[in-house]
């Protein structure tokens, strides 16, 4: 069986409404077998809704989807036997130990007692939960819970894995651990669909990205393509005196040749740049003008800026409009 060219997840025109809220307004997705798709989007974009439909936990109002060739509504049982799902909020049984959580799932999947125990030990090891394995999950930290949840979704060796914001709330070490796990799973041929708020994460793990906004796909492509559309880096300057904001903006505009955006609330001037070459110029001009700054940095574009570049509006446009109105009054 060749895995290239085959589609593990295919969704066409998924629509889901909650009362008057449209969570998904006709979403198409296609994930080739053995690849990682990143779903990016701001709060409320519909990421979780899409994952729950593809994971058979929710029925779409219209549209359809197949996972591993099986229809998520009509053949939900078959879909469940090939997927693993780690939801946005950990769904572990808090009143049992981590080990027992994993053994229970193994038993439900039809493993013998010995097999289920062996699998639990293996996963506890892999997710660095051996020491806490026999403690009741109620006493776990948020990050430990998430790792246990992730381990739970891997008990059955799923060939297709959904991860809804798998690293939110994890410390950098644990985050690296999850990334490593995802990479190893992909090496073994697992198809992964993960949602995230972090461009960096999508960049590090995914083969392609779709960007959701208000229930629709607003962009898709390889991580590099999306970033190219968004401008490569961003230069931030934060004056010590809020009163200097206008003058700093003018200096940055002259030095870089692009008009910067001015964030009155956070006293921040930022501008997209292709590289760091304009930084010394900005530093010199500021020095000549005698303006003290508390921050001067070059960074990758934030998700919000990618958003702005891709969609023409920010994730929280209404809110920032209101702030600007307030500031100009």
């Amino acid at each position: 069986m060749t895995t290239t060219n085959q589609v593990a997840i295919e969704a066409v025109g998924l629509v889901k409404k909650y009362g008057s809220t449209t969570a998904l307004a006709g979403v198409d997705l296609s994930v080739p077998t053995g690849t990682v798709l990143g779903v990016l989007g701001p709060n409320g974009a519909g990421k979780t809704t899409a994952v729950r439909i593809l994971g058979t936990l929710l029925r779409p109002d219209s549209g359809h989807a197949t996972v591993g060739g099986y229809d998520v509504v009509r053949e939900a049982g078959k879909v469940r036997s090939i997927i693993g799902l780690t939801g946005q909020y950990a769904s572990v049984d808090e009143d049992m130990s981590g080990r027992r959580n994993l053994i229970m799932i193994g038993r439900l999947l039809g493993y013998s007692r010995t097999q289920a125990r062996a699998r639990a030990d293996e996963l506890l090891e892999r997710f660095e939960l051996v020491d806490a394995g026999d403690r009741i999950a109620k006493t776990y930290s948020g990050g430990m819970r998430r790792r246990l949840d992730l381990a739970s979704s891997l008990v059955g060796n799923p060939s297709i894995l959904y991860l809804d914001e798998p690293t939110t709330g994890l410390d950098p070490h644990a985050r690296n651990g999850v990334w490593e796990t995802v990479r190893n799973l992909v090496l073994d041929g697992t198809t992964v669909l993960l949602t995230t708020q972090y461009l960096e994460e999508a960049d590090a793990l995914t083969d392609s990205i779709v960007v959701f906004d208000k229930g629709s796909v607003v962009a898709n492509g390889r991580p590099a393509e999306l970033k190219a559309q968004a401008g490569k880096q961003s230069l931030d300057v934060r004056p010590a005196e809020p009163a200097h904001l206008e003058r700093v903006a003018a200096i940055v505009a002259e030095s870089v040749g692009t008009r910067p955006s001015v964030d009155v609330v956070n006293t921040l001037v930022s501008v997209p740049v292709t590289d760091g070459s304009s930084m010394p110029v900005v530093v010199r001009r500021l020095d000549e003008a005698g303006i003290a700054v508390t921050e001067l940095s070059l960074r990758l574009p934030s998700l919000d800026e990618v958003f702005l570049a891709l969609t023409g509006h920010t994730a929280e446009e209404k809110k920032s409009d209101a702030v600007l109105e307030g500031a100009s009054r």
Partner: peptide, 28 residues
């Protein structure tokens, strides 16, 4: 593009599996 149909693992499709599943959940 053809669509891959992945075979569910054999051990999961036994008859009367629901009895053992119910007992496991009672054990829980």
């Amino acid at each position: 593009m053809s669509t891959a149909t992945l075979e569910p693992a054999a051990h999961r499709s036994r008859p009367f599996a629901w009895v053992q599943q119910s007992l496991t959940l009672a054990w829980r």
